[in-house]
């Protein structure tokens, strides 16, 4: 069974980029354009790793992670949080929310793949 990665980002182009990278390594992917959509999809179709952009309209990344974490079965879901923002403010609150790995945009392809692989081993 290949691992399934869910990508949540409001920018369509970024999702396509991650999909391309991840699928080239044989992962299955699932996309959502915002937190609400992600919540709906993930409850029906659980994934192994969640990649979330911190800055999204409607429901931002942190709120979304908090929401998902509060559901049964999702307490320990590994989360990669991605942010375009500079500085450590986001990073700190991300870790407080139990985010596993925090990446800065633009994300380097090898770093992304490495992070996903690392979370799947755990």
């Amino acid at each position: 069974m290949t691992a399934k990665i869910m990508i949540v980002d409001d920018e369509m182009m970024i999702r396509k980029y991650y999909v391309m990278l991840l699928e080239s390594k044989g992962y299955t992917t699932l996309e959502a354009a915002n937190g609400y959509e992600a919540l709906e999809k993930i409850l029906i179709d659980p994934c192994d790793v969640l990649m979330v952009d911190i800055n999204m309209p409607k429901m931002d990344g942190l709120t979304m992670v908090k929401e998902i974490r509060s559901r049964d079965g999702f307490h320990h879901l590994p989360v990669i949080m991605i942010s375009a923002e500079e500085g450590d403010a986001d990073k700190d609150s991300a870790f407080e929310h139990g985010v596993s790995i925090y990446l800065q945009k633009p994300v380097k392809a090898d770093l992304l793949l490495q992070s996903v692989a690392q979370l799947l081993i755990k």
Partner: peptide
């Protein structure tokens, strides 16, 4: 800035 240009391209 890469991220700004990325957002604009999107």
């Amino acid at each position: 800035h890469v991220n700004v240009v990325a957002a604009a391209l999107n």
